[in-house]
Amino acid sequence: MNRKYRILIIEDEAPLITALKQKFTQDGYAVSVAGNGRDGLDSISENRPDLILLDIMMPKMSGLDMLSVLRDDPMKGNIPVVIITNLNAPETLERANQLGVQSAAFLVKANSSLEKIATTVADTLARKVGNRESGAS
């Protein structure tokens, strides 16, 4: 890969942002950060990320509400999303599935190591690239 993948972390907990930013920067991604869903939408327009790492429970606009707005956007609607949350009620997972997030890309933070998140992000990006290539051929 010639250019760095751009990854947008939308998360409101400062310590977690620090850890994630550190991890993904180190792994060679271009990382940008937003503190809630609404700021996230602005940041998407600005930075055009390749992947969004999205928390759910956030002030102003929740991750799922933001995702449903994003999915309606014809230009940016298909950006892959990995959800990282500590809220894993079955209905939350179900709604995420409806918004195009596969169960494998729905991670409970307390149950997932940073390494697990990094692997999931890499897999999701690889699938996206794969889709694009198979679509082009």
Binding site: E13, P15, L16, A19, Q22, L87, V108, A110, S113, E115
Partner: peptide, 16 residues
């Protein structure tokens, strides 16, 4: 959720 958030911090930083 409230219990898990601080646990996540501990896990991730120790991991790092």
């Amino acid at each position: 959720h409230q219990l898990r958030t601080p646990l996540t911090s501990i896990n991730w930083f120790v991991e790092m």
